[in-house]
Amino acid sequence: MGGDSTVMKVSGLQSLGLAIQLSGDTSKSQQVLEQSLAIANQLNAKPYLSSILLNLGKTAADLGDPSAAIQYFDQAEQVATSPSEQLQARLDQFKLFLSYNKLDLAASAAPQLFQKLRELPPAAPPSMQPSTLPQPSIVCKTPLKFCHSKTWPS
């Protein structure tokens, strides 16, 4: 990895991108996060890549571009340096499927996702422990009325 100041720039741009997103300027947030990603790629700063890609995926989803969001979540999972980062990418993708009422995609992803959640080590937060997880059949059969507001691109 590059010098400390360059790595700090990656982290700073990522934080700035998130702050801008919270302020409501999702397009500007995406631009700043893409700058952070470009520098992280140049430095091969692997510890930052997955997190930046996850945030870009969430930004793409907020901008109504689920195809781009899926690509970012897939990339985040591929470059993840820990099982929890891989799991977060899958969870974000699952949430995207649900928000666009893609129940067939969510249903096909659910069993593997639940298996990964069950494999979490005991140090995982209590809310993510297997004993607190709903069964896949419960999740997949629950009506998702909130999902009908978004349209998946053809």
Rank of each mutant, 00 (worst) to 15 (best):
103 L>T: 10
61 A>M: 02
61 A>S: 11
35 Q>W: 03
72 Y>T: 04
56 L>W: 09
100 Y>E: 01
97 F>A: 00
28 K>H: 00
30 Q>M: 06
106 A>D: 01
149 S>Y: 13
5 S>H: 14
108 S>V: 12
144 L>E: 13
43 L>C: 12
117 L>S: 03
126 P>D: 09
87 L>E: 00
126 P>I: 03
118 R>W: 11
142 T>D: 12
12 G>I: 04
6 T>C: 13
1 M>F: 09
55 N>I: 12
73 F>G: 07
16 L>T: 09
103 L>D: 02
78 Q>L: 10
108 S>K: 12
48 Y>L: 09
66 P>V: 06
134 P>G: 11
126 P>K: 14
46 K>I: 00
12 G>H: 11
21 Q>K: 13
47 P>S: 04
111 P>M: 05
107 A>I: 05
15 S>K: 07
13 L>Y: 07
2 G>L: 03
82 S>P: 05
102 K>T: 06
151 T>G: 09
64 G>A: 05
100 Y>M: 05
48 Y>E: 09
48 Y>R: 07
80 A>C: 06
84 S>R: 15
46 K>W: 00
35 Q>P: 09
65 D>G: 08
131 S>L: 13
93 Q>P: 01
113 L>P: 12
19 A>V: 06
69 A>G: 02
14 Q>S: 14
58 K>Q: 15
101 N>Q: 06
53 L>K: 11
94 F>T: 01
58 K>L: 14
3 G>Y: 06
131 S>Y: 10
46 K>T: 04
126 P>C: 10
53 L>D: 03
62 D>H: 08
99 S>A: 00
132 T>N: 13
38 A>K: 14
102 K>I: 03
152 W>R: 05
95 K>I: 11
99 S>G: 00
84 S>W: 06
77 E>M: 05
102 K>W: 11
145 K>S: 15
34 E>C: 08
105 L>M: 15
123 A>F: 08
14 Q>H: 14
99 S>M: 04
38 A>D: 07
85 E>F: 08
99 S>L: 10
110 A>L: 12
132 T>L: 09
145 K>W: 15
144 L>G: 10
94 F>K: 00
110 A>G: 00
28 K>E: 01
141 K>T: 15
121 P>H: 10
124 A>S: 07
62 D>M: 08
142 T>F: 14
120 L>W: 10
80 A>S: 03
9 K>Q: 15
152 W>I: 09
91 L>Y: 11
142 T>E: 14
5 S>A: 12
131 S>N: 10
44 N>E: 05
125 P>D: 07
117 L>H: 08
140 C>V: 15
118 R>L: 09
103 L>H: 03
83 P>S: 01
34 E>H: 01
81 T>R: 13
5 S>D: 12
45 A>H: 05
139 V>G: 10
63 L>Q: 10
97 F>K: 00
76 A>G: 00
75 Q>N: 09
62 D>A: 12
42 Q>E: 07
